[in-house]
Amino acid sequence: MRKWHRWLSVAFGVVLLWIAITGALSQVVPMYLDATLPKAAPAAQADGKPAFVCPPDYMCRPKPKEGDPRAWIGTLHHLHSGESFGPVGVVIATLAGFSMIFFSFSGLWLYISMWRNRKERNLKPGWFWR
């Protein structure tokens, strides 16, 4: 198992780093932009009522205009999901997601097996060791 864990981590490490960075940016950028952009006044109809009222449980945003920094949010999503690279990118992003599941279970399995091995040899007990 250790050999598979090591080799797959080399193969998928770069892709997982890409997914982690673009995923984090796709969450942080909207928070930053919402705090820095001025709030627009709601449009009014001829009779003075608002043209659109956002439902209370939703956060409504207008579609970004050309040159608006909020357009980066969609680009980040496409980079994160692999859609920018076509069907091959989506397949690689999906495989990277499956590899994260594999790394979680295999890493836990490796840790437990090393912990049991140390316990059987009567070495230093504990959760962390050098």
Results as ranks from 00 to 15, higher is better:
1 M>W: 11
1 M>I: 12
2 R>Q: 05
8 L>V: 15
9 S>C: 02
11 A>Q: 04
12 F>M: 07
13 G>Q: 00
14 V>Y: 02
14 V>S: 14
15 V>W: 12
16 L>M: 13
18 W>G: 03
20 A>V: 09
22 T>L: 06
26 S>W: 01
26 S>Y: 00
27 Q>I: 13
28 V>R: 08
31 M>K: 13
32 Y>V: 14
32 Y>W: 15
34 D>T: 08
36 T>N: 14
38 P>Y: 09
39 K>A: 06
40 A>C: 10
40 A>M: 13
41 A>N: 11
43 A>Y: 02
43 A>L: 10
44 A>P: 05
45 Q>H: 10
48 G>A: 11
52 F>A: 06
52 F>G: 02
56 P>Y: 05
56 P>S: 10
61 R>Q: 10
62 P>N: 02
63 K>G: 11
65 K>G: 06
65 K>D: 05
70 R>H: 07
70 R>A: 00
72 W>R: 02
73 I>P: 08
73 I>Q: 00
78 H>G: 00
80 H>Y: 08
82 G>F: 01
82 G>I: 01
82 G>H: 01
87 P>M: 05
87 P>L: 04
89 G>Y: 06
90 V>F: 03
90 V>R: 01
93 A>Y: 00
93 A>T: 08
94 T>V: 11
95 L>C: 07
95 L>I: 01
95 L>R: 04
96 A>M: 04
96 A>D: 02
99 S>P: 03
109 W>N: 08
109 W>E: 09
110 L>F: 06
115 W>H: 13
116 R>F: 07
117 N>L: 13
121 R>M: 12
121 R>W: 04
121 R>Q: 15
126 G>M: 09
128 F>V: 15
128 F>A: 12
